[in-house]
């Protein structure tokens, strides 16, 4: 019952849509993981809604490190990110070791952000409507263009030269170990940026 109340959250429906389309595109592991997060998020949101505590959230973690310790932590994290990218990038794409590396880090990041933000941020107020709509238009246009290319393929699992998806365009870069390591480093850096927001 609680989960049903949680299904009012749009994010849950977006995750369910991703789970569905990912599964029919031949990536059942992705689909199952997205489904688990969607149901978990719905249950969590519903549980909090029933408690009438949707606005309550655990406060951000206090900044514990200062000065030299903080610098050491940043250097250690940077080194760990480089090692991670090098090791996971050395595995073939779609192999089980690469899958385990991605799922492992993804789980750590999602669980870290689930309960509370890492850093407290002041409320930035309302966003300008026109500018926000412009951003949404650009992002939706990108998604629709990718979807159009995907649907123009001979099948959902067969690439098309005439209508390449972003995955197809990145295949040459991701075919090499250094290319994979570089992209993984960017992926880790973006995840770090999101967690710190």
């Amino acid at each position: 019952m609680a989960a049903l109340a949680g299904f009012r959250a749009p994010v849950v429906w977006i995750l369910l849509a991703i789970a569905f389309f990912t599964s029919i595109s031949g990536k059942p592991v992705d689909g199952v993981l997205m489904l688990i997060v969607a149901v978990g998020l719905a249950w969590d949101a519903g549980r909090r809604a029933l408690r009438h505590s949707a606005a309550e959230e655990a406060p951000a973690r206090p900044a514990a490190r200062t000065g030299g310790r903080r610098r050491f932590a940043v250097i250690a994290l940077l080194a760990a990110a480089v090692v991670y990218a090098g090791v996971v990038g050395s595995f073939s794409r779609y192999s089980w070791p690469a899958t385990a590396g991605i799922i492992g880090l993804g789980t750590i990041v999602v669980v870290t952000g689930w309960h509370r933000p890492v850093r407290a941020r002041p409320d930035g107020g309302r966003l300008p409507r026109a500018g926000t709509l412009a951003w949404l238009a650009a992002l939706v246009a990108g998604c629709l263009w990718e979807l159009y290319a995907l649907l123009q393929q001979p099948s959902l699992t067969t690439d098309s030269y005439a209508h390449p998806t972003i995955s197809t365009l990145t295949d040459p870069l991701l075919a090499t170990s250094p290319g994979r390591a570089l992209v993984l480093l960017g992926w880790v850096a973006f995840g770090w940026y999101l967690v710190k927001r």
Partner: peptide, 8 residues
């Protein structure tokens, strides 16, 4: 994104 590009 990571799953899509790298995972099985």
């Amino acid at each position: 994104i990571g799953l899509h590009f790298f995972a099985r």
